[in-house]
Design a protein around this nucleic acid. Structure first.
Lengths: 341, 341
DNA sequence: CAGATTCAATAATACGTTACACAAGATATG
DNA sequence: CATATCTTGTGTAACGTATTATTGAATCTG
């Protein structure tokens, strides 16, 4: 306590909070001097205890080691900072137990605003936290009608994205199109398979279940090893009797692994195999070959998410709907081409 | 306060902290029941205020959007969590003002352990914080004798890394070797240029200043756009009258951009241009062509860093030196080859 | 000039914990 | 039986801040 100024606590509190409108010039100067001298900083912890408020958001993601989430985290942090909030990043590696621990820990720290970027298909396990006053925003995943639990959300139309990708491949003349994904644990992944399936049917093609490769949960690979999984998946698909001529996959890291795995087996991209990713991470544009992918407008998503979450957290009447679904965009680059014959 | 149990605060505190050794079974049960019923969670904020301690580390990095830092952050978070610490990630984008703000903010939040992964060459601007009791650990950067400010550090021998890369290229027969880097603002980058220069001289080659491309500070690209910078750099070098036949660069993201930029100009990697990166991010292995690079043992570095920082933070006598410098390793892959003739 | 009003700064309280000293009842000791 | 010892649980003071009510002094009013 800087009552080194020969003045009361309240007075110090007043000057710090800028309530020196009607204060003696002399007292004010004395306080200022004491602050400088001891270079005193008010304790954020004490403030939080007093106010019950804490200007911090929790960000729960699979792993910042995955460039999509790394970029998203950075953008979310930036957007939050602009509104005076800090962001506590939690890497769950899609482990439900870890996720639960994070939530408890965030709750204990009085953090009441959470951006959820990963989670099993259902939100049920979070309903208790929501009841206890946690405000949960879903990022990059549909809310599936759990609007009592999730108060706002920003995502991309996953099904549409999958349709765009599939339509593009069909348009090039592909008939055997594969799909590669990690364990289908999240709704966004589920939606992507479905979108692809329905588009195939619309074109009169029958989806071949053998071409849907889904990593088993047992693999134990977290999101940090997505490329590794893509590599494993494509090796299995390409050694089938009738391998696919194109693959669509759940994110660009998988796509990178797929390209690598295909090359190991002597397949050239796109001559022997077309590949479509999802996300459009920075890398997609500069890799070889530049990746055809479905773009998510991450920057805009980050901005919107933070804005909506903080608005509901602070009880501000936000403009627009609490749940926004943006349109993904097909970025045609060089990893796709017509099949060989 | 859950004195809904009909019992005193102290008693509740006791059971929560596991001091029920000599407690009536009946009282204990009553408290437990009350806890369950209100699903009561002790306030971490109040605890912190009382104890003055907060089990949280600050992690200051250029940007988690850069996969090297994304991976490092994830590993550091994981290591910290094992010891019961949370990690607050701060993306500075190498902006000194932002960095200063982060430090003040961390200080105000009573966070006293900081892992510093980015910073201008000197540590002087941190000396005040160090005096105020902040424990600063340097990650992936030399401490340059500022041991009064930086209490522990984990890094790789930057100069050796640069020498390994240069020696490899010289061994392949290259004589005109370029260097591409962002603004030389950190000691690690400085060391890398120097290592290269000295190895060239050792081989009897004269370093050509025209081949050293350093982004100006004005470019305004943060670390999130490293690949973009590499692309820009290589375009300038390759349009010289006597372009280099090989380049060494400061990190793998630059290398990826370099490969892309070279291809745009019709140069093939490695036939027309050899490229050596730094870091060995996961992507390096799966890109096309697989990247020859200098490997940093990030996992080990993260473990060591967290261990040393928490040890000094808690006043534990750690084993081994407070400052460790690990050996980088040359990973020869396919982005390097002998020059064309 | 006595009483009412304004002004500037302070004292008191609460936020939810933990640590410590202490109280009341039970049991043991001489 | 009086005292000492143990058992089990309680009361209270901090931690550093923000808010509210309150003081004492100075100025105004009729």
């Amino acid at each position: 306590m800087a009552k080194r100024a020969g003045v009361s606590v309240s007075t110090v509190s007043n000057v710090i909070n800028g309530r020196h409108a009607k204060m003696g010039a002399r007292t004010l100067r004395k306080v200022q001097e004491a602050i400088d001298e001891l270079n005193y900083t008010p304790s954020a912890v004490a403030r939080q205890l007093k106010s019950g408020q804490i200007k911090m958001l929790g960000l729960v993601v699979p792993s910042v080691a995955n460039p999509f989430w790394g970029t998203a985290s950075q953008l979310i942090e930036k957007a939050a900072l602009k509104r005076g909030y800090q962001v506590l990043i939690c890497n769950t590696e899609r482990d439900p137990e870890l996720e639960a621990n994070y939530f408890s820990s965030l709750y204990a720290s009085s953090i009441r605003g959470i951006i959820l970027g990963s989670s099993p298909v259902s939100f049920d396990h979070l309903s208790e936290h929501a009841k206890n006053g946690m405000i949960i925003g879903a990022f990059d995943r549909a809310t599936q009608g759990a609007n009592d639990i999730v108060s706002c959300s920003v995502s991309v139309d996953q099904t549409l994205g999958a349709r765009l990708a599939t339509r593009h491949l069909i348009g090039l003349g592909h008939k055997r199109i594969g799909f590669i994904s990690g364990p289908i644990g999240t709704s966004s992944r589920t939606a992507r398979v479905e979108g692809m399936r329905s588009e195939l049917e619309k074109a009169g093609l029958t989806p071949d279940p053998d071409l849907i490769w889904v990593a088993s949960n047992a693999t134990g690979f977290g999101d940090s090893h997505a490329a590794e999984l893509g590599r494993t998946g494509i090796r299995e698909l390409l050694t089938l009797d009738e391998p696919p001529t194109a693959v669509f996959t759940v994110n660009d890291m998988y796509a990178i692994g797929i390209c690598s795995g295909a090359r190991e087996l002597g397949f050239r991209v796109p001559a022997d195999l077309s590949v479509v990713g999802f996300d459009d991470i920075l890398m997609a544009k500069v890799m070889e070959p530049p990746l055809t992918t479905i773009r998510q407008p991450v920057e805009q998503m980050a901005e919107l998410m933070v804005q909506k979450l903080i608005d509901t957290l602070e009880g501000v009447e936000g403009d627009g709907d609490a749940h926004v679904v943006l349109r993904p965009e097909l970025m045609v680059r060089s990893s796709t081409a017509a099949p060989r014959n």
